[in-house]
Amino acid sequence: MSPYIAEFVGTAMLVLLGDGAVANVLLARTKGKGADLIVIVMGWAMAVFVAVYITASFSGAHLNPVVTVALALAGKFPWSKVPGYVAAQMLGGMAGALLVWLAYRQHFAKEADPDVKLGVFCTAPAIRSVPHNFLTEMICTFVLILGVLYLASPQVGLGALDALPVGLLVLGIGISLGGPTGYAMSPARDLSPRLVHALLPIPGKRDSDWHYAWIPVLGPLAGGSMAAWIYMHAH
C-alpha cells in the first residue's frame, strides 16, 4: 500500500469510527442514545488506535495534517511529501464522514435537532469565545503533538507511531481537555466532515457554522508548531 493511500484509508477509518461514536450517542433512536462524553472519548481513542495500527508500517500513520506539518518542522519528515499527505488526509476525512452518514442515515432523518446533526460531523464550543476556543484547541493539540513527537518509532518507519500509546494519549486529552471545544486537533477530523455536512442532502440540517470553522484549523496548527519548536530545542 502506498503511503498516500494508507493516509487516505487510515484517516477515513479514524473519522468513521470517531464520528460514528458521536452519532451513536447523539442521534435519535440509536442503541447508544443518551450515553455520556466518556463513550465518545473512548470511541475516538479506539478510532486512533485502529487507524494507527492499520497504517503505521505503510505511511507512519500521521492521519492528521497537523502531525505531518509538525513532523516536518521537527526535521522528522520531508517537506516534499507534506502536500500529498495532507491531501490524502483531508480526502480521507471526507470519505469517513460520508460513511458515517450512510450508516446512520435513518437516524439523521429521525433527528429533529439540526445542531445535533452538525455535531456528528464537526466540533462546536460549549461556550463560544474566539480567543478562548482558539487557545483551547492550541493547548489540546500542543499536548497531542508533543506526545506524538516523543512516541515516534523509527523501528516502524519515519514518523510512525506505536498504536496503543497514541490511542491512550488521545483518550487522556479527551478526558482532560475535551470539554470546552470537543478537542478537534485536526482539520481532517473537523473541516473535512464539515464540508461533507455542507454537501450532503441531510433533511432539516442547519448551516455548517463556517464562522467557527477556522478555529479547529488554525488553533491546532499553532499548537502543533509550538510543540515542534519545543521538541527541536530540547534535542
Rank of each mutant, 00 (worst) to 15 (best):
G119L: 00
N133G: 15
P114N: 00
R105I: 10
M94V: 06
A95E: 04
A95H: 04
Q106D: 13
E137I: 01
N133A: 15
G96D: 04
F58N: 11
F134H: 08
A87I: 13
V69H: 08
V66Y: 04
T68A: 08
G119T: 06
K76H: 12
L144A: 05
A112G: 08
I139C: 01
I139K: 09
A88M: 04
L98V: 10
L98G: 13
D113T: 00
V69T: 12
Q106H: 05
C140I: 09
W79V: 13
K81S: 12
V156F: 12
R128V: 10
A152H: 05
G147A: 06
V69L: 11
L71R: 08
F134W: 07
P83D: 15
G60S: 12
F134V: 09
G93N: 14
T123A: 14
V100I: 10
F142E: 07
C140M: 10
N133S: 13
P125L: 10
G75C: 12
G92C: 07
V67M: 04
V82Q: 07
Q106N: 14
H62D: 07
P114E: 00
M94I: 04
A103E: 04
A70S: 14
A152V: 13
V130L: 14
G75Y: 12
Q155N: 11
N64F: 04
W101T: 02
L71K: 03
I139H: 05
V82W: 09
C122S: 15
G119C: 02
C140F: 01
D115E: 08
F134S: 06
V148K: 02
V143N: 11
L151E: 08
G93L: 03
Y104Q: 03
A124E: 10
V148P: 02
A95Y: 09
I145A: 07
S80L: 11
V130T: 11
V82K: 00
C122G: 12
A97S: 13
Q89L: 09
A72Q: 08
S59T: 06
